[in-house]
Amino acid sequence: MRGQFTGWPEQAMDVLWQLQGEPTHATRERYRADRERLVRQPMIALLNEIADTDPRYEDFSVWHYRTDSWWWQHQGAVIRLGRKIEISLRFALDGLLIQGGAHLQRRPVVHRPIFVRHLGQGSPAAGRRRP
């Protein structure tokens, strides 16, 4: 499946922009197919391509959206590298956030930002940085 991921199209940001705030059920339904095609499917293509390059990344999940508007505004995924080690990815208007986490002997999950890619000058994310 190499070469399947080409990034998120600009229209993905338009869909997420329409889903800001507390969108009504009717608004979410109006954008459901576009969100699946333009936001969720590119995340699946990205993780498939990563898994094709290294089999350690084959165990992954791409989350669906639920009734809570936050899930409609953020596309999440997780790659499980081991029983207690995960890489989480989240795509939203801010860009792509990648974090690593480890579940260590009954302690809380440790999340450390690894990389945030902002989407260029024309995007709503331009000029913003994550802490």
Rank of each mutant, 00 (worst) to 15 (best):
L96H: 05
D54V: 09
R40V: 14
E29D: 12
V39D: 02
I98W: 01
T27A: 00
S61M: 02
P55D: 03
V109F: 11
I114F: 06
E22G: 11
L81Q: 06
Y65H: 02
A126K: 08
G3W: 03
E22L: 14
I98Y: 07
M13K: 05
I50H: 01
M1H: 11
G95H: 00
R2S: 15
E58G: 14
R128A: 03
V39H: 07
G101I: 04
I98H: 01
M1F: 05
L104D: 00
Q4A: 15
V110P: 00
H25S: 13
W63V: 10
P9N: 07
E58P: 03
L16T: 14
E36F: 05
L93D: 07
R66A: 14
Q99L: 13
T53Q: 15
A77D: 05
H25P: 15
H103N: 13
Q105F: 14
L47R: 04
H74K: 13
P42E: 11
G101Q: 07
R30V: 07
Y65T: 12
V15L: 02
H103V: 07
G3E: 09
L19T: 10
L38V: 00
H111W: 15
R80N: 08
E22F: 06
L81N: 02
H25Y: 08
P55H: 04
T27Y: 03
P9A: 14
R56F: 09
R32D: 09
L104H: 07
V62H: 04
L89N: 02
M1N: 01
A51V: 04
A102N: 11
S88Y: 03
L93N: 00
F91C: 09
L38M: 09
Q41G: 00
E10C: 13
G122T: 04
I79K: 04
R35Q: 08
H64Q: 08
R2K: 10
A45I: 05
Q11V: 05
Q105E: 14
E86G: 05
S69K: 09
R37P: 04
F91S: 00
H111D: 08
R30C: 11
R40I: 13
H25D: 05
D54Y: 09
R40W: 08
G95Y: 02
D54C: 07
D14I: 01
P55N: 04
Q4I: 02
E86I: 01
V78R: 15
L93C: 05
I87T: 14
D52F: 05
G76E: 14
E36A: 03
Y57E: 06
D94A: 09
V15S: 03
H64T: 10
R130D: 15
G3Q: 02
V39Q: 00
H118Y: 03
F60M: 06
L89A: 04
Q41M: 11
F115H: 11
V78G: 10
G120L: 00
P42C: 14
V109S: 04
H111L: 10
A51T: 02
Q41A: 15
F60D: 04
D68H: 06
G127Q: 08
R90C: 13
L97G: 05
A33R: 12
Y31H: 07
I79A: 09
A77K: 04
A26R: 12
E58Y: 06
A33D: 03
Q73R: 04
R56V: 08
A26L: 15
E22I: 12
F60Q: 02
T67H: 06
S123D: 02
Q105N: 12
L46F: 09
